[in-house]
Amino acid sequence: MSSIPTLPLLDGRRIPQFGLGVWQTPAEETARVVGEAFKLGYRHIDTAAIYQNEEGVGRAIAESGLARDELFITTKLWNADQGHDSTLKALDRSLSKLQLDYVDLYLIHWPCPEDGKFVDTWKAMIQAQAEGKVRSIGVSNFRVADIEHLLAETGVMPVVNQIELHPLLQQSALRDYHHQHGILTESWSPLAQGGDLLKDPGLQAIGQAHGKSAAQVILRWHVQLGLVVFPKSVTPARIKENAEIFDFELSAEEMAQIGKLDAGTRLGPDPSTLRI
């Protein structure tokens, strides 16, 4: 596996641009899957409290023999735990399950704007960062208005915003805002949950030109856009294949071709309406 590049965060730290996501990975399989990824050279793992598999991630970390500073571990606060004190308690639960003293990145999973708790939540995360329980803090599924509200109330900008992003939903305006303010964009569901997108003749033709799969082409597209990406798989061969995207480069024409696939197709919930 080729060396994975890292990208700078607003707070001066760095994040591996590529990793393993464990959304929908069954709890009983998580330790094995993450352990396989570690053996293949993965060092960035993205989990969340609501995934109910933090214990498996923690077990894999403990059994890996890897030094803590070699790893980059992200987890997320679930909506029902928003609020100042409940955020701090939820973080402690996650740390216990992960068997860690700190996480590298802690995210607010959804803004749930109508519930009005994400500013208090953010203040708690700033406190947790000051206490050393979290190295970096960010958000997930936030809109521009949500980010600007956080900044106005606290003066602290999130270092990342993890959003649904794939060739069918490219989120150009939000990515432009992130770029202007130094926020890194992380892509969830980077392959649009597979399915029909991987059968796209244009993507398959690009893949054939490079000796790669359509999935590898899409992941390479994310990387060349400067996005942080962590595809999910439970299959060792697929976990290995997903990481083999640093030995080729898409041309400007190929990037533009993929850009034309944008259809504004959202597969997950709408951040403006999701509630606790």
Rank of each mutant, 00 (worst) to 15 (best):
D101G: 15
I45Y: 02
H210C: 12
Q52C: 05
A237Q: 15
G202H: 06
E28C: 00
I206C: 05
I218D: 10
Q216M: 09
G12W: 05
L7T: 15
N79A: 14
P269S: 07
G19V: 11
P190F: 02
G19R: 05
E249L: 10
I239V: 15
L227S: 12
L10E: 08
E54G: 00
L95M: 09
L203Y: 05
L7I: 14
S187M: 06
A145Q: 11
T154P: 03
K117S: 08
D247I: 09
W188R: 07
A48F: 04
T185Q: 06
A243P: 07
L203A: 03
L88K: 14
E55C: 00
W23C: 05
A27S: 08
R32E: 00
A31E: 03
V119F: 00
G21V: 08
H210G: 14
S3R: 12
L71H: 05
K117H: 13
D146C: 00
Y42I: 02
G41M: 04
L7M: 09
E253G: 15
T30H: 00
R266H: 09
T47N: 00
Q99L: 00
S64G: 03
H181T: 04
H222K: 09
A48R: 06
F72H: 09
Q208C: 02
H84A: 11
E164T: 13
D115M: 07
R13G: 14
Q170R: 12
A173P: 04
V159A: 04
I206N: 08
Q180G: 03
V228F: 09
A49D: 06
S3H: 12
